[in-house]
Design a protein around this nucleic acid. Structure first.
Lengths: 123, 123
DNA sequence: TTTCTAAATTGTAACCGTTCTCATTATGGG
DNA sequence: CCCATAATGAGAACGGTTACAATTTAGAAA
């Protein structure tokens, strides 16, 4: 348990929702914590392997990280054309994902869902 | 409508499920079609903008493409530890995603869903 | 506390998928 | 057939991520 490890976890906890490794690195630098970028990546990989953070990929291909079990979980309805994003809440999908995983013997379940289309303005 | 355009569309149609730009490029090369990698990317971008193909990101950050409206649509249950993937079929989620999009005025709807966890072997 | 060893850290270089550049080639209307 | 316009594509550039190796650090043992 090193100073850097604590710093990364703390930065993740402070961040709301998903943020990239480089965001975290910049945030730590701004906060005066000297942590190497390679270390941020290493910590994030460990945390991911332990199932303590979720990873999704942005459209740009960047990896975005979020602490598991944290606040509001929701999904996105995104326009392919203009990039506009609405939030979706779908309790039925939450329970479905949980149950389908459990029934296959999986644990530490998480999921990601995105609906894409053309919004009224772009159609 | 160029020879290369037809070749890319044809390769996409032949491919089952998602495949990467580089896969398509290799497939075309093997089939004797001379198409530049940059052209494959350009075509895929156009097709994506038109909503004729879906894009998802693999865990490695590669963009994977799939023709819209094509055959079997399904989702994945993936183990975070060993990478094992099971296919999921979820008619209820399909219709939910469709309806939620339509009710927001969206058209040309598509969606992606992935459930992750630790499989029985890795738990 | 001091010493020691294995593990963590980190700057830099490499990697790889993707995008950009721009000279070349092809298309299709007139 | 000609020409203006757009598409093509080899190679360079780019950006996020990972590998590497030298240095530093944590934590146990003495």
């Amino acid at each position: 348990m090193t100073r850097q490890r604590r710093a990364v976890e703390s930065a993740l906890a402070q961040a709301e929702g998903f943020c990239s490794a480089q965001d975290l690195h910049a945030q730590l630098r701004d906060a005066g914590e000297r942590v190497g970028l390679a270390t941020v990546y290493a910590q994030l990989r460990q945390l991911t392997e332990q199932g303590r953070v979720d990873v999704v990929r942005s459209d740009a291909g960047e990896a975005l990280y979020r602490q598991c079990g944290e606040g509001e979980h929701h999904h996105h309805l995104r326009c392919r054309q203009c990039g506009h994003v609405d939030e979706l809440h779908a309790p039925a999908v939450e329970t479905w994902a949980q149950e389908i995983g459990v029934s296959s013997g999986y644990t530490a379940l998480s999921h990601s869902l995105e609906v894409t289309g053309l919004c009224p303005n772009c159609a």
